[in-house]
């Protein structure tokens, strides 16, 4: 296959960027999208030109590093799929593909297609944990937890922290990401102890980072590679309500 690529190139955080045209040749339909970019990069490197920078690591949809907006959709056209698991058979010979980075004030572009997502780490740092130290934990079976509760918690805990939800949301809101962690922890008995302080601290942090609010559009859910539903956002609101009304 031969493809026309329009790829966002930006030298660093302060430089202004633009879309640059490339042609990807001899692309096999079995390649993943990132392998297609590897091929383009290999060509650039051999010519001594600066390779296109993009994040990736596991290349199997779990680390959350890869982060490309492909033809206007975060992680590309396949549902429940990270861009590292998107395959070129999804495209036709001669297609034009536009590739952009996540765009949000809280995710400044570092270079080309790489953005700085440390804001997510700071949201977790603000309270996305259970405060226990190593040692002294009670037996794992000391507190039985209903299977259905654990399964729901696991649905939320599956978040890979990729940031596609922010990228897709018209408000660049981090509500889905945050609510996934808040739900995961608030559903489990171990996490209930700190639920009030946690939800307030995390939301304040996200607001301070410059993420937007949520207008309930659900684009985030549609692009989320782990298909995390926005019912988590509703749960976060309830958690927040509770935190405001009931003092710990």
């Amino acid at each position: 296959m031969r493809l026309n690529l329009k790829i966002w190139r930006q030298a660093n955080q302060t430089a202004s960027g633009r879309l640059v045209d490339y042609v990807a040749e001899a692309i096999s339909p079995d390649m993943s999208f990132l392998e297609m970019l590897d091929v383009v990069n290999e060509g650039l490197i051999k010519k001594g030109e600066d390779a296109i920078a993009f994040d990736s690591d596991c290349r199997e949809g779990i680390c959350g590093a890869c982060s490309l907006v492909v033809n206007g959709t975060a992680h590309g056209p396949d549902r429940g799929t990270t861009v590292c698991q998107l395959h070129m058979r999804r495209f036709k010979d001669g297609d034009t593909i536009t590739v952009e980075p996540w765009r949000a004030k809280a995710f400044p572009v570092v270079k080309d297609l790489i953005v700085d997502r440390s804001a997510f780490d700071r949201i977790i740092t603000a309270g996305g944990y259970i405060s226990i130290n190593a040692g002294g934990a009670p037996d794992g079976n000391a507190i039985p937890i209903a299977k259905s509760v654990v399964e729901t918690a696991m649905d939320s805990a599956a978040c890979i922290g990729c940031g596609a939800c922010v990228a897709a949301c018209k408000n660049a809101s981090a509500h889905l990401f945050m609510s996934a962690k808040i739900s995961h922890l608030a559903l489990l008995p171990q996490g209930k102890v700190e639920r009030r302080a946690r939800v307030v601290a995390m939301i304040n942090q996200a607001d301070g980072e410059g993420f937007g609010s949520c207008s309930n559009e659900g684009e985030c859910e549609a692009v989320c590679p782990k298909e995390i539903p926005i019912s988590n956002i509703a749960r976060m609101t309830r958690e927040y309500f509770r935190a405001m009304l009931v003092r710990a």
Partner: peptide, 22 residues
Amino acid sequence: VNIVDQCVAQGVPFAREYGGLL
């Protein structure tokens, strides 16, 4: 043995049986 206890306390959602045990 301690690792699993530690992880459960941290909120790791290990699979459980219907009775609620790991």
